[in-house]
Computed example of a mutant assay.
Amino acid sequence: MGTDDVIAAFTPSMTGETPLYEQVSSFFKQRIRSGALQPGDKIPPETALSAELGISRTTIRQAMDVLVSEGLIVRQRGRGSFVASPKMRRPLNHLYNFTENMRELGAEPESIVLDCAVEPASPELEQKLELPQRQKRVFRLRRLRCADTTPILLEDTCIPYYLCPGIEQIDFASHSLYQTLSGRYELNLHHATETIEAILIGADDARLLDCTTPAPGYRITRTSRLDTGLVYEYTESVTNAERCMFQMELYSSNAGAKNPAAIERRVSL
């Protein structure tokens, strides 16, 4: 079914209580989520929609703004509006697991191991991991995380090796890192501090993430601690902003204080 056929199936109600722009945006949401409109399909120009539906162009623009804000369509200068590719919606209000998150979204997760080794920690990494004086080695795991074969996240994780000896022998293309740390080494993530920074993705990372360069992206750094307070993970990740959005639920300070596993969120301007 083409875009014109989809539009022909919509008849706005001029007498109902729902505002016209909400009717239009809801109609497009339903068609996009049902698959009637596919990623890359072009949305008719606002002037054409206005004429076809008998609705003012201002109302059409308001409806399109809603779809853009929700990541369902994208505007391209000089070309028009198109149905966007599905984005990974990453929650920020609880401790995050890529594999579980992808399955919740109905996507098949995949991890491609780029590097898996035990190596000396740099002075900067020693400080970040708060390594003991005689324990300066780290286990480094660098992976490309994919959803339905689409690259989503380039992830570089370092863990103090004294906490997980022998872990480099495990195939993390098919095993979960967190499940391994929890089940084999009894290391349970208790608290994480994350920083999310807007960046332009460099050429090397863009090649792995299969995106043009320079592309808008996010750099995510995470420091995780055990319930004893020991740092046991430092991770830097890069993701394409066109494939990922961040979602957070906000509570009052009193409500947040009741959740000891809350992620600390910082925004730098």
Rank of each mutant, 00 (worst) to 15 (best):
G202K: 12
I220S: 02
L187R: 14
I199Q: 13
G229K: 00
N188A: 07
R222H: 03
I199C: 13
I220A: 08
E233A: 07
G217S: 02
T235W: 00
A198R: 12
L208S: 12
G217L: 02
L200V: 00
T221Y: 01
H191S: 05
T193C: 07
E197A: 13
R222G: 07
L200Q: 15
H190P: 03
V231H: 02
R219Q: 15
A198T: 02
D204V: 07
Y218Q: 11
T235V: 09
T228C: 00
G229T: 13
I196P: 08
I199A: 15
E197I: 11
Y234N: 04
R222F: 01
D204R: 15
D210L: 13
A215P: 15
E194Q: 15
P214I: 02
V231K: 07
V231T: 06
L208C: 07
E233G: 00
D227Y: 08
N188Q: 11
G217R: 01
D210F: 03
C211L: 15
C211T: 06
R207Q: 13
T221C: 09
I201D: 00
R222E: 05
Y232I: 01
L208V: 13
L209A: 05
T195A: 07
T223Q: 01
Y232G: 01
L187C: 08
A198E: 05
L187E: 10
I199V: 06
Y218R: 08
L226K: 03
G229L: 02
V231N: 12
D227G: 01
T213Q: 06
C211I: 10
S224N: 12
V231C: 03
L226F: 02
L187K: 13
H190C: 10
I201P: 10
E197Q: 13
L230R: 09
E236D: 01
L208E: 09
Y234G: 00
R219P: 01
E186I: 07
H191Q: 12
R225A: 04
Y234D: 00
R207Y: 09
R222W: 04
I199G: 11
E186L: 15
